[in-house]
């Protein structure tokens, strides 16, 4: 068993280091890049927390739509070729529902401050 700190703690320690000691020291492009680096670490942090559950849900939905049980990567590939070859209608409600859910789960990790994500999340 790996000793503490956890991988999350290690990432948080780098984020805090960038925030408290580094960014203020930099100017121009380097400062911008340090900000981007901090954001990237936050993406990783959210991914560590959320990906397992959201992937499980995505996989379940995919196997229901495609009526097969393969890896998430394989099933997405099959879904893409079904869409390309008109084997699934792009107006199909189950498909649209799945794509909305999957995209919202991705954005929860990638860009939870994005305008459309927030607007969609706050929809009644």
């Amino acid at each position: 068993m790996i000793n503490p700190p956890s991988k999350e703690d290690l990432i948080v320690s780098i984020i805090e280091f960038l925030e408290n000691d580094i960014i203020q020291e930099l100017k121009g492009q380097k400062r911008f890049h340090a900000h981007v680096a901090k954001n990237s670490l936050n993406i990783v942090l959210r991914q560590l927390k959320l990906e397992e559950v959201s992937s499980e849900k995505e996989k379940d939905r995919l196997s229901k739509i495609l009526k097969t049980d393969k890896t998430i990567k394989e099933m997405n590939k099959i879904l893409c070729s079904k869409i390309d070859n008109n084997n699934i209608d792009i107006d199909n409600n189950e498909l649209i529902d799945h794509l909305f859910k999957t995209t919202m789960e991705k954005l929860e990790i990638d860009q939870p401050n994005y305008s459309s994500f927030l607007d969609e999340k706050n929809k009644p």
């Binding site: 995209t103 991705k106 990638d110 994005y114 994500f117």
Partner: peptide
């Protein structure tokens, strides 16, 4: 190999939600 070139791939999902909303 700059940090912003790497992370921009994670902005693709922004366009995915916009596409879904526009189309449906």
């Amino acid at each position: 190999r700059s940090v912003d070139r790497a992370s921009i791939g994670r902005r693709v999902s922004e366009t995915e939600i916009d596409l879904l909303r526009l189309i449906t």
